[in-house]
Each structure stands twice: as C-alpha cells, then as structure tokens.
Design a protein around this nucleic acid. Structure first.
Lengths: 146, 146
DNA sequence: AAATATTAATTAGCCGACTAACTAAAAGGA
DNA sequence: TCCTTTTAGTTAGTCGGCTAATTAATATTT
C-alpha cells in the first residue's frame, strides 16, 4: 500500500489492467476464430460497414500497414471481405461477412462481460469521473500547435 | 460529447492513451538503443539488479518466453547481461551493464516527461482518486477462488 | 536410490504493432 | 496536357506479446 507512489506505476498498472481485460475477452471469443486484436475492428464495422482501410485504421487507432495485415487474416478466417470502391480505384472497402456479423454478436457479449467485471463495484458517478480523467489525459497528450 | 457512453470505449480510450504515452517515451529513448517495451524491464532491474528471468517476468507482467527474447535483444545491444545463479543451475540472473545503468537514467527522465504530460492539469487528489479507481479495477479482475 | 513431478529457461510459431520503402491511382499546377 | 504531389494500400523487416512444446535441473515420492 505504501510502495509505488510515482505516476509511472499508474501507466504500468493501466497496461496490466488492459492486458487482463483483453485476456478475459480473448478467452471467450477464441473459439469463434477471433484473435485478440480484432474486436475493435469488428465493432467499428458493426457501427459502419464498408469503411475504407484508412478510415478503419483511424477508428481503431492503428496504422494502415497494421490494418492491412489484420484484414488479410480476417479475410482468411472468413470474418470480413474486401471490395473495391466504385469511384476511387485506390480505395478498398472492408465489409463484414455473414459469419463476421454473427461472430460480432458474441464479441459484444464478451466485451460486456469483461467491462462488467472490470467496472464492478463502481458507482455510476465514479465511472463518469473516470471518463472525465481519461478525456483530460487525452487532451493533455494532443499535440498543440503554437 | 454525447457519443461513446458505454464502458467499452473507456478501455479503448485507455489503450489509445497508453499507446500515445509509450510513443512519447519511445521518441526520447530510441537514440539510446532502447526499444519501446524495454523501459519496464530496465526500471525493474534498477530497483533490484540480478533478478531471475521468472522474477523479472512477474515484475513486468510478461511471460517467461517473452522475457527470454527481450533479454536476448538487450544483451545484443549491450544493456544487460546474463549470469548463471550460483546455487540453482536452472536459474539465470539478469544484470544491468554499465551502459544499461547510464541509459536507465535517460529512460527515467523520459518517463517523467511523459507522465508530467499525461497528468498535467491534474490536482494531486485527482491523481490519488485515479489510482484508487485503477486499484479497484485490478481487484475486480483478480480471480477469486470460492 | 530410483522414479516421478515440478520448475526455469528456451525455442518455434503465431498475432499485433510499428516504420520505411514501394506501387498505383487521383488531384493539382504550370 | 504533362509533370508533380498527394493519397491509398501493400510489402519487408523488426520488436512485443502470447501459447505450446522442449530441455535441463531440482524437488518429491515411494
């Protein structure tokens, strides 16, 4: 209780928490051919299907190169499919397959389970407060032009 | 402001924050031959040098296999060295080299810079509150035997 | 003492993430 | 129009992380 009072350990603790959270989800969804990095991508497509690679990469905070390889794998496991954009031949759009849509239902349940676990015993106002602090941090890290 | 009210996005936001935090540190330490995953290992050794692989893996919340490969690389870049344990021939202990110790000074500064950035505009009691919430989450995720 | 189980570390193989370098297509300028 | 710049996506190479399987040494059991 008296050790680790420096802010560094807070980020270390955060990364540990996220690792456990991710692991909880992965345990549930692994049987559905979904790998640990894929839930954000599936959720993004379930909100708006047919995003381009660039849009999708931005939504899930990944680089295009990372996304390209992920989509390769997910195409192989039959979760998504690529279709060329009609107007711009540079653009490839990514769509959920039927299997992808079915699997996303289970992914959402898994996330719900993990979130209820990690935020259990939290008062609603504590969750709101936590959100406010995270948004403050995000703002702090935003590069300022001056 | 009105979108993303579900807890899921909180973990997504956390992972985004950590990614930026890690990137901030990496920008500073990259010239010192330190790769983005290595700061926690260096800090652990600067607190207690000569840990075994198993101990070190536990401290930084990694698996032994992950650690083994990291130590390989860090031995190549001259940051750490392996020495066998005297009493137990199964055990290998990891020590900071002189270069490793020097570099760790810069790593600590980089972490300090990144932490001051991410926690700027935070009141001391907000940091404490944030810590309390994270510890609550950690406790929530601890597997209970019952 | 000998057989068995456990522990420490490594290796192989995979997924996730990045940067840098590349190709192709579209947009903009002279 | 032609040249240049920008944008979209892929590929290659590397680091970080995992699980499963392997090897070696120590502990346990019988």
């Amino acid at each position: 209780m008296s050790r680790h009072h420096n802010p560094e350990s807070l980020t270390h603790l955060m990364s540990h928490l996220l690792k456990m959270h991710r692991h909880t989800i992965d345990q549930i969804i692994h049987p559905y051919d979904v790998y640990p990095g894929q839930p954000p991508l599936l959720l993004a497509l379930s909100l708006e299907d047919g995003l381009s690679h660039s849009e999708l990469a931005a939504r899930i905070h990944n680089k295009r190169a990372t996304l390209s390889v992920m989509v390769d794998r997910m195409e192989k496991t039959g979760l998504v499919e690529r279709r060329p954009d009609e107007n711009d031949q540079r653009v490839t759009r990514v769509y959920l397959t039927e299997k992808g849509k079915e699997v996303t239902v289970h992914v959402k349940e898994a996330i719900k389970t993990a979130d209820e676990m990690i935020f259990s015993h939290f008062l609603p106002e504590e969750v709101l407060l936590f959100r406010r602090l995270l948004l403050q941090m995000k703002d702090n890290l935003r590069p300022k032009e001056e």
